[in-house]
Design a protein around this nucleic acid. Structure first.
Lengths: 238, 238
DNA sequence: CGATTCCTTGACCCTCATCAAATCACGTGG
DNA sequence: CCACGTGATTTGATGAGGGTCAAGGAATCG
């Protein structure tokens, strides 16, 4: 695929690159595809590339020795995987759905980072956004009830899906959960049974409707947000 | 104070700046001091500066409408406060102890960021480290028991204190908790009662000894780490 | 010595985890 | 087409961990 046709051309790490810079990137890039459930890299693995999620959803997880697992990152299209200057993976990365990754060989990418302020700035911007998201997530993990966690998660997915279509979230919405119940549990710091029960409860209360296992219909987005415990006024702009 | 005498000279955002760059920074900087408990900025406030913690400890917190509070950042000496390019505070920042802040006016700092790759690179590096720390924290919030949370927190403080003195943590250690029980509860996603009970329990079990309210003695650092639920093998290097 | 603030301890209960089983969705081969 | 197996999800019964409410210490400051 040529960069000019890329669906994440103006949102990924390459967003501000043009002309020669873009062709430099184009030269060091290659694509990889992973099926849903496949591991991408494992904690401690040597990682000779970094890259962007082009399509699909991937997760970053950490585990304790006894197997307790916490998701610590959810990578959607345009999100960046890997840390420049570090050649060992710090987390397990897994494809949650089918994933297409636009990879850059690490060496030349690191070099280009040093030489290209554009690139470093864009990555800084993205990393700061990710840090904000992580902090929102910490509030969820530390202080929200199971019901609020589920409502928050669905509303996050709804927002991102709306953003993909360049819309404001609101009113009636139809969406597809990109995660299994187990992955949702790992995201939210819950068990899969609690996830299932709270989804059932939200359905019983008319906040959501279900369409198969992954499909969710929101009769009223605002109603869901009320259930999420968040301030209704939306917080800061990005 | 002159930058050359600064205790965080080679760890803060200015670490890689020399010569003219350093004197540029020196010109736009000024110091502020806050007493323990004082607010530094409030979420939504206009923020006309960014800066580094020189001495002391500050916290970033988020709250839900009903008052539930979660700490989302713990700023130690050399840590950076504020986001370049954003003029509204996204979090509440509070001095946990007496804090000295080295502030830079935002406008000239943003400008210098654009012009000085050094600075942007350093900030990227620091932000990536902070993201790693946030992800470790998410694992704690989502999956650890109250006892493990307390043990983890004390071990984090022990590690950082050791790092300040350029030592490896280990063996017998004496330390000072920089947070009240309430702030610890907000850090860990617990109530202050549970914090208190678990500290008592760790003391009863000989994992820690107490010296007043804030003083903690570790007879054996490794023993504490065992209680924290973390892999003993220390994880990745920074 | 009160007054205030921070911390500890106790009693009780609720949310969510655990263990177990039933149900559902789907693909496979007879 | 249907029995069967497999993995994901739901549902149920039970209990423990940690929250809530309330009271009692301890340290600090006037």
């Amino acid at each position: 695929m040529r960069c000019t046709d890329c669906p994440i051309r103006y949102r990924a790490v390459c967003a501000h690159c043009e002309g020669e810079e873009l062709s430099n990137l184009e030269e060091m890039k290659f694509y990889r595809t992973y099926e849903a459930g496949q591991p991408i890299v494992w904690e401690g693995d040597r990682m000779d590339f970094v890259g962007s999620v082009v399509t699909g959803v991937a997760s970053l997880t950490q585990t304790l020795e006894d197997g307790r697992t916490q998701m610590v990152g959810l990578l959607l299209p345009s999100d960046f995987l890997g840390r420049p200057g570090r050649d060992q993976a710090a987390y397990n990365a897994t494809a949650a759905t089918k994933v297409v990754l636009c990879c850059f060989r690490r060496k030349p990418f690191d070099q280009m980072m040093r030489a290209t302020p554009h690139l470093a700035h864009r990555l800084l911007e993205m990393t700061l956004d990710e840090l904000d998201a992580a902090r929102e997530w910490m509030l969820l993990l530390g202080r929200k009830t199971a019901r609020e966690k589920i409502a928050s998660f669905i509303s996050i997915i709804a927002r991102r899906q709306a953003a993909l279509h360049k819309r404001q979230p609101g009113g009636r919405m139809v969406l597809e959960l990109p995660l299994t119940r187990e992955a949702m549990a790992d995201y939210l710091g819950l068990t899969i049974e609690t996830v299932s029960r709270q989804i059932t409860a939200l359905k019983r209360d008319g906040v959501i409707e279900l369409e198969g296992k992954r499909g969710v219909i929101l009769p009223d987005f605002a109603r869901l947000v009320e259930e999420s415990g968040d301030d209704s006024d939306g917080g800061l702009p990005a």
